[in-house]
Write a protein that binds this DNA or RNA. Structure first.
Lengths: 251, 251
DNA sequence: GTAGCGCTATAACCTAGGTTTACTTTGCCA
DNA sequence: TGGCAAAGTAAACCTAGGTTATAGCGCTAC
């Protein structure tokens, strides 16, 4: 365990509740560790590799993807600054996806081997990591709900709403405008549609005065209407820190 | 924590590795607790409720589903005997789905409030639960991979392969035949297709000599070919218990 | 028995979105 | 400043799977 990992993990919880005392106490004992700088396109891990560590994304965007035999690609998760990557390969110990940086960014590793130590040392940290892993699962579930039986327009709108909400949550943006560093092909592979249809759909959303995309800058013109079109309910992104269940009695 | 929950959780790990000594030691201290009998169609939880416990499914099948405003339904997860339900509502504390028994069965509850205690008492159990939660996430990810850019035939074949593999894994069946207690409408809502097309697709699979379905009994006639059609690789269902990362040094 | 209900099967028809190809725009680098 | 590569747009055409409708089958209830 190291300081940077800790800070990254706790940062998002500070939004909901002040855990500062406990966190500060824990941080006292942690060594400062190294951040690694990566460029857009750099690989974080590859399919088939052994998974031996979690990766904390301090800045930049990344994605994980699965390649089918026919060469087509399915983007599974989009990672934003502050996210913990590789949580679902802890149990299997094996990468089943490729993960790639979408932009330049800084990352920091947390070896699996330190997890049991963490489980030992700090039930609270364990609970937090559990909650984070949980949230990823909820996001996957939500994606599945909205990927089936939803039109291409709704899917794209939903994805935009989700990115926006996540960026607002972590303070990466504070306006209805942000840099969305995915090409239309990336979006297509994320949302299970063709790049051509992503283009068509963007045109449609723009024509309806909902969003505007210039280069990779995305401007949400009417956030409320966009959420309505997308049937987006961002509550699933919130981690409820329930004192009763996870009260920090002792660390 | 109670004995039945423990047994349920550990049972599936015994398949991979002998943890019996450690588990036995833990079980010594656990009270025998109550199982609850439920009938097919009984609700396990409903959307909007507060989530205050995990549910261990000792026997029977269940599912969780999300209902859209237009009345259509998305089955999210299918639960088989031995599964731990409700893992992804721990962090949010809120049910975003309905869960319903597909068959009669026995369940046992594990309150969230006991989780932190468990994190405190046993890093090993924590790691196991973490691994189980992880596996659910992997299953969701796999579902997403196979739901997009795969034909209806492949999706149905994949679902059958997955159920079969899970039942084999936990010893619920030992042949290429099992009771699949989902209607074609249930399958349709699981796989994001229409019930009519499920019927068509079953006919197709039957015509190709891959499966046969009589009432709710499903017979896999050619398991290898079915897996090939489905592009099914069951490795994602295995939990690798990596001694190095999660070695049980002390409990 | 037979009425009724839930589940499944088959056929006819229709549409969202895929595919292909060709063209345009933008940015980058020499 | 010009040429190239990557990204996006537009139009024409096509297919997987949705929709609707109808009919059959096997329970259970009376």
């Amino acid at each position: 365990m190291n300081r940077i990992v800790f800070e990254s993990i706790f940062r998002r919880f500070d939004i909901h509740r002040t855990l500062e005392q406990e966190v500060a106490a824990l941080l006292e004992h942690l060594p400062e560790d190294e951040l690694r700088h990566l460029k857009a396109g750099d690989s974080l891990w590859q399919e088939g590799e052994n998974a031996s560590s979690l990766i904390v994304l301090r800045s930049g965007w990344a994605y994980s993807a699965h390649y089918h035999k026919d060469g087509s690609r399915q983007l599974l998760e989009t990672y934003l600054p502050g996210d913990v990557l590789g949580l679902c390969q802890v149990a299997s110990g094996n990468r089943r996806t490729n993960a790639v940086m979408l932009t330049d960014g800084w990352v920091c590793e947390l070896p699996h081997s330190s997890l049991l130590g963490m489980f030992n040392d700090s039930p609270m940290t364990t609970a937090l990591l559990f909650a984070i892993a949980n949230q990823r699962q909820v996001m996957l579930a939500e994606r599945q709900i909205m990927m089936t039986h939803r039109s291409a327009k709704q899917r794209l709108a939903h994805f935009i709403c989700e990115c926006h909400a996540r960026l607002l949550e972590t303070g990466e943006t504070y306006r209805d405008e942000f840099l969305l560093p995915l090409t239309q092909q990336d979006l297509a592979d994320t949302l299970g549609m063709s790049a051509v249809h992503v283009s068509r759909t963007f045109s449609q959303l723009a024509a309806e005065g909902l969003v505007q995309r210039r280069l990779f800058q995305l401007i949400i013109l009417d956030a409320d209407k966009l959420r309505e079109v997308a049937a987006f309910d961002g509550r699933y992104l919130k981690i409820q820190w329930n004192e009763e269940d996870f009260s920090i009695t002792e660390q």
